[in-house]
C-alpha cells in the first residue's frame, strides 16, 4: 500500500474475546486536522496505543508514507515521525522546563547517547529550546521545575516537547483534560499555531475545542468507526447526537 501520510486499514485488536478495535480504516494526510471522539470505553486510547506501537494489532495495516510501521517499536515509530501527548500529563517533573525540552531535541538529533560534552553545550539545541519557549510562552519558566507549573502550562510543555521531535503525525490525547477553563485558551492557541503541514489527530471530550480546531471528526463507538465528517455533518447526525453529544448540543 502506498500513499503520503498515515494510512490505517482494517485495524483490529482483541484481548481474548474482548474486541476493542474493529476494522478501523482512516487516513491522515499532511496538514489534516482531525478529531477522534467517542464515549468512554469506545476504544480511543486503544487506537492511539495501536498507532504509537504500545500495543500490537491483531490484524490490519498501518503505514506511514507507504511504509509498514507495524514491526517498529514505540521509539522507532517516534523516529519515523509519529508522536503523541499523553492523556495524563507525563513529564520529567523534577527537571526544569529547559531540561524537559533538551531531552527530545538531543534524542531527535541522535545525541542523547553522548558521554563527554555537557548536555547544555550544544548551541543549536539551546537555540531551538529558546524558539520553543517563545512559541509556547514559557520563556519566563525556563528554569522552573515542571512540577511547579500550573497544569495548563505543563500541558504546553508536553506539546512543546512533542513538537521538538519534529513529528509528521501528532496525536494529542485529550490535550484539554484537567486544564482549568481559565487556561484552556492557551491550549487552543497552541494547537492553532501548530505547523500547517503537520497531521494532527486530537482525541478530546471537550466539544468546544474539537469543533474549533478539527476540520474532520471521526466518531468511534465500541471500537468501530460510526462515521467521519465535518463538524457540521457530525453535529447534524442523529446517531451521534443520541450516542455521544446528547440532546444539549446545538
Amino acid at each position: 500500500m502506498t500513499g503520503v501520510g498515515l494510512k490505517v486499514r482494517n485495524l483490529n485488536k482483541a484481548f481474548g474475546g474482548l474486541v476493542v478495535a474493529r476494522n478501523i480504516t482512516l487516513d491522515l494526510a499532511p496538514g489534516d486536522r482531525k478529531a477522534l471522539i467517542g464515549p468512554n470505553g469506545a476504544g480511543k486510547s486503544t487506537f492511539t496505543n495501536l498507532i504509537t506501537g504500545i500495543i500490537a494489532p491483531t490484524s490490519g495495516e498501518i503505514t506511514l508514507d507507504g511504509r509498514d510501521i507495524r514491526p517498529m517499536s514505540e521509539s522507532q515509530r517516534v523516529k519515523a515521525g509519529v508522536a503523541k501527548t499523553f492523556q495524563i500529563t507525563t513529564l520529567f517533573k523534577a527537571l526544569t522546563v529547559r531540561e524537559n525540552l533538551r531531552l527530545p531535541l538531543l534524542e531527535r538529533r541522535g545525541w542523547l547517547g553522548r558521554l563527554i560534552r555537557r548536555a547544555d553545550s550544544y548551541p543549536e539545541v539551546e537555540m531551538e529550546i529558546d524558539g520553543l519557549l517563545k512559541q509556547f510562552k514559557l520563556t519566563h519558566h525556563a528554569h522552573t521545575p515542571v512540577d511547579r507549573l500550573a497544569y495548563g502550562q505543563q500541558r504546553l510543555v508536553e506539546m512543546a516537547m512533542t513538537l521538538a521531535l519534529k513529528p509528521r503525525i501528532l496525536i494529542l490525547d485529550e490535550p484539554a483534560a484537567g486544564v482549568p477553563s481559565s487556561e484552556s485558551p492557551l491550549i487552543m492557541e497552541a494547537i492553532a499555531a501548530l505547523p500547517a503541514d503537520l497531521s494532527v489527530l486530537i482525541i478530546e471530550h471537550d466539544m468546544n475545542l474539537v469543533f474549533k480546531v478539527a476540520a474532520k471528526i471521526i466518531v468511534l463507538v465500541a471500537g468501530a468507526i460510526l462515521m467521519e465528517g465535518t463538524p457540521a455533518e457530525i453535529s447534524a447526525d442523529a446517531r451521534v447526537r443520541d450516542l455521544y453529544l446528547g440532546a444539549h448540543h446545538d
Binding site: T52, S73, E74, S75, Q76, V78, K79, A83, K84, F86, T90, L91, F92, K93, A94, L95, E99, R102, L103, P104, L106, E107, R108, W111, L112, G113, R114, L115, I116, R117, R118, A119, M161, T162, A164, L165
Partner: peptide, 25 residues
C-alpha cells in the same frame, strides 16, 4: 552532566515519556 546523564535522569523521572520521545529505554 552529559546528554547520556540527562537521559538517565529522564529515565528516572518517566520511562513512558522517554519512550515517547524515541529513546530505546
Amino acid at each position: 552532566a552529559s546528554p547520556f546523564g540527562l537521559a538517565a535522569r529522564g529515565i528516572r523521572e518517566s520511562q513512558a515519556r522517554m519512550r515517547a520521545i524515541g529513546t530505546p529505554v
